[in-house]
Every structure is written in C-alpha cells, then in structure tokens.
Design a protein around this nucleic acid. Sequence first.
RNA 1: GGUUCCGUAGCUCAGUUGGAUAGAGCAACAGCCUUCUAAGCUGUGGGUCGAGCGUUCGAGUCGCUCCGGAAUCACCA
Length: 595
Amino acid sequence: METLLRTGIKEAVRTLYGVVADDDLLQIQKTRKEFEGDFTLVVFPLTKTSRRSPEQTAREIGEYLTEKIDAVSGYNVIRGFLNLTISPEEWGRRLAEMHADTGYGFSQPGQEAETVVIEFSSPNTNKPLHLGHIRNNLLGFSLSRIIGAAGNRVIRTNIVNDRGIHICKSMIAWQKYGNGRTPVSEGMKGDHFVGDYYVLFEKKLKEQAADLVTSGSTPEEARENAPLMQEARRLLLKWEAGDPETVNLWQMMNSWVYEGFDVTYRALGVEFDKIYYESDTYKVGRDIVLRSLEQGHLIRREDGSVWIDLTADRLDQKLLLRSDGTAVYMTQDLGTAVIRYNDYHFDRHIYVVGNEQNYHFQVLTLALQRMGFDWARGLHHFSYGMVELPEGRMKSREGTVVDADDLIEEMTATAGVMSQELGKLGGYSQDEKDNICRQIGLGALKYFILKVDPKKNMTFNPRESIDFNGNTGPFIQYTYARIRSVLKKAEETGVADTADAVEGVIPNTKEISVIRLLHDFRQIVPEAARELSPALIANYCYDLAREFNQFYHDYSILGEEVKNIRNFRLRLSELTGKVLEKGLYLLGIEAPERM
RNA sequence: GGUUCCGUAGCUCAGUUGGAUAGAGCAACAGCCUUCUAAGCUGUGGGUCGAGCGUUCGAGUCGCUCCGGAAUCACCA
C-alpha cells in the first residue's frame, strides 16, 4: 500500500512540479487516530521543490492522487500534513488478498537469505537456571523465529560451560559430603541437586576461610588458601590431565545437570539445533591462539602468558592464555566461533548475552579480525539488560535468586486459580485444564518479559508483575481463543458459507481499523528481524488484539443476517486469529483453542 | 577515573528514518453481560518526557554540558 502511494506521489510531484523527488523526501506514515485518513504525507520536505506553501502543495498532491489512484478516495489537509483516505472497497480487496495468502507475513528463504547462527542460553553446569536465564532464553528463541520468519536460515546454538573451576567445586562437595546420593535417590531434578553441592561448597569454604582470617590472613588470602579451594584446583588440574576417575565423575554430574536443564528447556518451549560444549572448544581456541602467536598477531610475556594488544582500538591488552598454558573464557569463545564458522559458514552470528559482557564481545570480535578471520565482522553481540527485583539485583548469597522452575510452576498455578475464579474451563478433563493453564501461565511470563525493549534493564516483581489483564500475554491468547470459538461455532451451525460470498461488502470503520493493522503485519516481521526486537511483535499483537476486541464488542459476527457481511466478518476474524497465532509463535507463546 | 547503556503518569512500559494536542496497561473511580467467551468493552482523573543549552520550519527522538542509576575495565565466567 505504501509503495503504491509512494509511486503515486512521485508521479504527482513530477507532473505537478517537473521534478523527480528523492525517496527520503517522501515521508509517509500512518495517520494518527485523531485525524481522518489512513496515511499521511508530511509535505514540509517537499515545499522546496514545489515552491508553494505546505497547504497548497498538500492540496495539489491530494487532488492528483484522489483523481489518479483508484484506491485513494479522498484527502484532507491540516497544517503541513496531507491525510489520505483509502477507500473501504480497497481495504476489502486487501483483506481478500491477505486472506488468500496462506503464508501471510512469513517469508521463505530466497536469494537474499542469510545464514544466521544464534547463540543463547549458555548455562554453567553448576547451578539451575534462574530468571536471568529465562530472559536470555526467551529473547534468543523468539529472535531465532523472527529472523527465520523474515526469510533467513537460522541455526540455534547453545554453548554449555561445562568445564572449569565451578563444576570442580560441586564435584568436591559431592565427593566429601554426598555419601553416594543421586538425583534419583533424592527425588530431585539433577541441576538443582548439583547446584545444592555448589552452594554447600561455598558454605564450607566460607567456614574454612573464616577460621584462617581469625588466625591472621586477609579475607582474599583465606579464600584462596583454604583447603577446599586448593582441592578444587587440584581437581581441575586432574581433569585437564584427563584423569579417568575425575573425568568419570565430571561426566556423571554433568549428565545429571543436563537432564535437569532438558526439563526446564522443555517447560519453556525452547530448543536448539546444535549444542556446543566448552570442554570440546577450548582446545581449538588454544590452538588458534598459539598459531596466531606464531604469525605475530599476539604477544608472549616473559611469564609465558599470551596477550592481544588492542590499545590501538582504544581497548586494553587482554589475556588469551594463562602463564601455565591453560585457557580462559575468551580462549574457548575464540575456538567456538571458529568451529561454528567452519560448521555453517554463517553470514551473521548473533550472541544473546547480557550487557555485562559488552567488553568481552568487543574484544572477541576485534581479536578474531586481528587474527585474520574476516567473517568476524558478522559477529553481533545482542546485548540485553539485566532483570532486577524490586529490592535490586538478584543475589545468590542473599537467596533472592528467582529459580526458573519455581517461577514456571507458580505461573501455571496462578493461571489455574484465575481460571477457577472466573469459572472457566468447565467440562474439560484435568489434563486439558492443566495444559491450558500451563499455556496461559507461560504466556503471561513470556509476554511480560518480551514486551519490553531488550536493551533496557527490567524490574520483575514476582508478586505483582504478572498480570492476566490488559497488555499481557493472556489478553492476546484470550482474543485468539475467542476467535477460535466463534469459528468453531460457525462450522458447527453451518452458518459459514464456504463459497466466496463476500461481494459487495464495504467494510465499516471498525473493520477497516482491524484490516489496517493486519496489513501492517507484513512489514512488522522484517522490521522486528532488522531491529532484533521481539518487543515490536509483542506490542503489535497487543494493538491488533485490542482493535479486534473493539470490533467484536460493537458488531455481531454470527448474528449478522446479511450473508455476505457475515462471511466477510468471519474472514476478518479468521485472518486476525491467524496473525495473532503467528505473532504469538514468533514470541514462542502457545495459542490456546479455549480459555 | 575510562568506556557503554538507561532516565517518559503513583507503578510497569510503548513512542517508527526528527513530524500534528506524548500513548497503553496496572492501581483509583463510574458505567456495560437474556445476545458469538466480561481474562472483554466504554468513560474520568493523572506528565516540567531527569535538568539546561544548541541544531531545525519542527526535538521525548539528534549534538554538547550537567544530575541520577546500572554494567564493565581480573592469569573469573
């Protein structure tokens, strides 16, 4: 529609003023609610070429368009704004087009398609997932769907930080205090089970350190010198040396954690195409660093540690290998990136990682380029803000960490209570009820997190934040369920006319408002992909649902006596349902048939 | 201190490449179910867009300065 207007206006300017207008002079936007019209041309930029007042220019162009373009049925001019009205008949035709297009809004990979690797989640294997991971997973998964829907090939990946001192701590604690217990023997999820030993380690370590402090050490020394810490370090060395017993223990405990993670991922509805493990990639990283050192891109200090000098790029020198030759975090990320490039030859690689690691990714990108990997230009750090509680940051020490599994369960339970209170879901089996409540609870959680601009820090109040009314996931799900209910009833009662009996129907104002929004969907998806913003999709869905609910309130669909109008409204409802379903899909939210 | 990000209604957030009188939801108050799902719809009140200066026909949006908050600057990840 906009391109139609754009070419029309260009033509108008050429005919009227004999000048070919630059594209950026043609500012077309949606007309604001308080004015009449569908699209607005801002004429100020054109007055230079028209050499007339804004009002006159607007009138002349408006007149031209109304006359020459069938779809434009009228115009009005307010100050320097030309408001164009699209004829209801044209909107009717647009609806028919969108309705006939089964894949409406989504693109298949074509010539322009990029291969995009997207990494998200990236857990450590010493703790269960928490609220911060939830934001990460939801953002990453939603982005992967959005980028895919915009016509790209997407590979979802995860890097599991399965090696390092943190997992050794859990291993030590389990060896010393575990008495052979397992997740099965305790009836616990494996990630929580292992996480508890990590916490136990820290607790015992603190006790030992306290003793050392009383005998004269500084707190830092005490922590480093405590017997438990030394044991953990020894264990890490044994692991790196490939000691079979250590490796076996490591594998066993990690496998417990993975089983636990799988449950959480499934509950969140998140999945991956390829999972990488740091234990596999850090060695590749080390090799790359050593080779790059030989090629003279890096510096070796006297103590044997290897550094990259980024002072020319206004960053610091950064460590890539410790003096004892072991890898640091950066080392494995270098290796992972190279392995992934070899695996997929991606055009772009998106890292969904919190903004606390901005510096890390600046260094990573620059380091790879410095080492001669040109494709590193395609690396992009999707940096999102922290999730905070009303009291501030989540702190594991203060026990304020919101556990992912607990939260999901609470959301589902709350949805159950709401359904009960509202008297919904009568006549459904317990299984069906549970499933719908799960969908709604998760819908509320996911929408709440995805509707806010990713780069902003957000506050999450476990008690009050999650609502089921207003600008929420359940509101959109509810609108969808309502539509499904109407369509189902139409089928059952046979009012739906399968023939294309909508001729002569001229949509009313409310219907046009809905059609206009449906029409936007085509642009919203690529825009969200370009901006990497699930929030755009979320807020769009909200607008559409709200607009539809007004229409639904004001007009009867099945009760409409004129057959063509009834069919027209059924189509409008059907398409709205489909678009909402797709929008929710892009957010990773399920659309319940009933609620 | 250096770098990066954020500051919009009591609270949580929208606000397109700069465009018209800055919008939603929650909370508060007042209405609407004999009719397709009231998890809905309608209305009322609520603002120095952190502050100031500048660019522009036009600034919540761009630039500079300041104020407030966050992150980061480890042989941690």
